[in-house]
């Protein structure tokens, strides 16, 4: 997943992982596409049944392995297809977001938000903003490489 970004000034592709819930945000992204709203192309979408399915470890793993950004988007709170999935999710996601920087991983590389199926415009805005944000942060070094052999003096 890691890419070599030798020249940060160069506008190379970013790796942004998007986890979108099946019922709202995936539909929202679809709406944006159908309406031909212009969007950055760095996002790779993974469809999940509900943000309640989001294991914070999915996000941690992406960032540890060097994804430049992770975006999670689901139905607006109280509009969850399964009633409460996103209400559980937002607690977990917020806790993770605050924990990442403690381990030395930039919390700004991760964002979670809510976009309904009809909000094509809002989707366009979310993706554009987030891609810009990641672009300004530059490539994610991840947790680098192989472990240095044992100890240092």
């Amino acid at each position: 997943m890691t890419q070599s970004h030798d020249n940060p000034a160069h506008k190379q592709a970013l790796t942004i992982v998007g986890f979108l819930c099946n019922w709202c945000s995936y539909g929202g992204a679809d709406t944006a596409g159908v309406c031909r709203f212009k969007q950055p192309t760095d996002l790779r979408i993974i469809r999940v049944p509900c943000t309640g399915r989001m294991d914070p470890l999915f996000i941690a793993r992406s960032l540890i392995l060097g994804a430049d950004g992770v975006l999670v988007s689901g139905c607006h709170p109280k509009d969850c297809h399964y009633a409460v999935g996103n209400l559980y999710a937002r607690r977990r996601l917020e806790v993770l977001k605050r924990m990442l920087p403690f381990m030395g991983i930039d919390g700004d590389r991760f964002r979670y938000t809510w976009v309904s199926a009809s909000e094509g415009q809002r989707w366009q805005q979310v993706v554009t903003e987030f891609s810009e944000q990641i672009r300004s942060l530059g490539p994610n070094p991840g947790v680098t490489g192989k472990s240095a052999a044992a100890a240092t003096a």
């Binding site: 470890l57 793993r61 540890i64 392995l65 806790v95 924990m99 947790v143 680098t144 490489g145 472990s147």
Partner: peptide, 20 residues
Amino acid sequence: YMHLPEKFMFHFIHALHLAG
């Protein structure tokens, strides 16, 4: 493997499962 990402990941697993 004993690479750092694996070790980070293990500790994320342990810690996040203990959150709260």
